[in-house]
Design a binder for these strands. Sequence first.
DNA 1: TTTGACATAGAACACGTGTTCGTGTATAAT
DNA 2: ATTATACACGAACACGTGTTCTATGTCAAA
Lengths: 208, 208
Amino acid sequence: MAQKLSERQDNILKFIRRYVAEHGYPPTIREIGRAVGISSTSVVKYNLDRLQTLGHLRRKGEVSRGLRLAGEALSGQNVIEVPLLGYIRASAPLPAYDEFSDEVVELTLDIVREPELVYALRVQGESMRDASVHDGDLVVLRHQQTADPGDMVAAWLGPEEGLTLKRYYPEGEFVRLQPANDAYQPIIVPAEQVEIQGKVIAVIRRLA
Amino acid sequence: MAQKLSERQDNILKFIRRYVAEHGYPPTIREIGRAVGISSTSVVKYNLDRLQTLGHLRRKGEVSRGLRLAGEALSGQNVIEVPLLGYIRASAPLPAYDEFSDEVVELTLDIVREPELVYALRVQGESMRDASVHDGDLVVLRHQQTADPGDMVAAWLGPEEGLTLKRYYPEGEFVRLQPANDAYQPIIVPAEQVEIQGKVIAVIRRLA
DNA sequence: TTTGACATAGAACACGTGTTCGTGTATAAT
DNA sequence: ATTATACACGAACACGTGTTCTATGTCAAA
């Protein structure tokens, strides 16, 4: 049975877990002390050394933030958080990529091989049915403002038309946004009225 | 298309990923510089600022190790390893669930809500095209030996017919395994010649 | 030729960071 | 009464850490 921790030591562990979850790296000695009400860095060090002796964490001496919790998963290395920015068809353009996103979906690098600038949208509607993209599916996109002909893209068409998911075909000074469903008409608009906001790189559908 | 990185910037990102995987916290400016051959801390800072501008990482100013990679997950807890057991259409039945699998695909609990008894297969062929399952897709299945009518299942039909992916319809003492593609005939066999090996719970398709 | 963007580099600096030292209290065991 | 252990605390220190400043070079575009 694990040796009983003092209340302070328990608070330290809880704080470290929260801090890592929020920041992605561990706290400093002084941050720990401020959080749990220890005014002396040597007391924080003493308690961290105790927690290390008891197997709750590991410290690397003389480097900043040199601690990690016991049992912390390294497999998280393969996980990415993809901002879930909303829905096709939305009534606002997607936010700037570096803006805060409330909601994320966790995927892995087995699904998204290059995790830069990716986000996800949930599909509403069946305009891309013949491309096997259905209502309720999750599409993963890479933020980019250009596309190749035939790419499936998220395009912002202005406040009236909103955000749409279609195949992109430039045609002179127009752009044709082609549905993959005969029930929908292609959208043909002047190129300057279209803002490409991302290209689809994966589709994920849950059935159960 | 993402803006091209210089070789140095690419090396910096690779180093940071390796360092975080090994240490559990990010490297310092000086550790990055030593690793990629930059002798000046201001050049490291310049490159990190550029990588941040391009969306590859985020920095928190004036704190040690205050950086994190874009899309880096905050927790490994949500990851599961799903055995990737082979292909539809295989010439052998699937192994017992607890047998060793060489190959896995990592998914998250956002994709597979109940991780018990799941495995994945890669689709070969287009027999389920009208169900939006295409050649090359990854299907995730839950190992089970029963199914409800209409479920998409992996069924083993014996050494001649192999493993197939179809919709399952029991019809008296027969079973109809229904493709979702008019180019394929339904398979109607005595129920005792069919072994249900799993039911599809998710479909994942990568486009890029 | 000039300009601007990008990239490099070293030096200096401010301050963050962890460690060491000396000292104290409380409690339990001997 | 003494000893050992756990836990506490502030001060001082050495050095790690990130930023700023200044200078320079390359390259492409105007």
